[in-house]
Each structure stands twice: as structure tokens, then as C-alpha cells.
Write a protein that binds this DNA or RNA. Structure first.
Length: 148
DNA sequence: GCCAACGTTGGC
DNA sequence: GCCAACGTTGGC
């Protein structure tokens, strides 16, 4: 799950402990969130920064939550076409699990994994939520070191 | 700041 | 349903 550290970084989640992963306005990304289950783990990826890459670990603590920002006309995520009866956007709640002792930059990830093993390294991938195969995830956890 | 690689919108 | 125009993401 990607986020820009200037907007909401791993440090912000560490302070807050849990947060709603709201503001997702891409159907494919939304659908990936819908497939998540409570207890699932997720990598926190810092995007649009130097260097981009995986920095921490999270756990899904609640699913299928209606994204409140879609109804807030003051929010940049406001969607005038979404209704309370038929909301377009939902999200999950995540909990901070830790920061990796051996963070992996996008450059590192490209050296370690192919496009197919880890879709985030594929050129042109702009999705902010991308599934990771269990096998790759287990290997990533070994390469990322300890949680600090 | 540039631009590739998308996704979305809206006229037809 | 097609597609041109436009907007966004995000690495570089």
C-alpha cells in the first residue's frame, strides 16, 4: 500500500497507531482493498520521494468501511456522484506493526524480484494498492530484516 | 520539471 | 461503443 511520506508517512501511522486508508479513488485499488481480510498484513510503501520503497509493516484491523471523505464537500476526495444509499468508495483500517531494519528501495526491489514476482516494480504501475503473492511476501519479510 | 503510462470524461 | 482530450501518478 503506497503513500507519499509528505502527505502521510510511516511516521504518521506510528504516532496514530491505526488509520483509515481513505481517499482511494481508483476502482482497481478499491477492489484490492475489498479482497482484504482482517488480520492480513500489508507493506507500507513510500512513493513519490527519495528513495521510494518499502519501509514498514501494517495489519488490517477492519474492512468494508465506507470512506467518509467521499461525502465531505471540503475534502479533496469529495465525490459528488456518490450517495449515502449507494456509496462508491470504501476502505480498510490499518494498524502500525513496525518499521523494517533493512528497508528496500524500489531500486533494491527491482534487483531482487521480477515484474511478475512483485508487480510494484513493473514499469508504469501507478496503482496505489497492489497485491503481493504469499511466496514473494515471505521472501520480502526475510530480506527486510527485523521490525523496529 | 519531464513524461510514460495509465484512467476518466464526454461528445458523437 | 469509440476515441480524443484531458487529468493523474510517480519514477526519474
Amino acid at each position: 500500500m503506497k503513500s507519499e511520506p509528505d502527505t502521510y508517512g510511516l511516521g504518521d501511522l506510528e504516532k496514530e497507531k491505526t488509520t483509515l486508508w481513505d481517499g482511494i479513488r481508483n476502482y482497481q485499488a478499491r477492489n484490492f482493498m475489498r479482497s482484504m481480510k482482517i488480520g492480513d498484513q500489508a507493506f507500507f510503501y513510500h512513493s513519490n520521494c527519495k528513495p521510494p520503497g518499502i519501509v514498514g509493516l501494517m495489519q488490517i484491523t477492519a474492512t468494508k468501511i465506507i470512506d467518509p471523505t467521499q461525502f465531505d464537500s471540503q475534502s479533496k476526495y469529495y465525490d459528488s456522484k456518490s450517495t449515502e444509499i449507494n456509496p462508491r468508495w470504501d476502505c480498510v483500517e490499518v494498524k502500525y506493526k513496525g518499521e523494517f531494519s533493512n528497508k528496500l528501495s524500489l531500486e533494491d526491489l527491482k534487483k531482487l524480484y521480477t515484474d511478475e514476482e512483485l508487480k510494484v516494480v513493473k514499469k508504469g504501475n501507478r496503482l496505489s494498492i497492489i497485491p503481493v503473492e504469499r511466496k514473494t511476501a515471505e521472501d520480502l519479510l526475510l530480506n527486510l530484516g527485523k521490525l523496529i
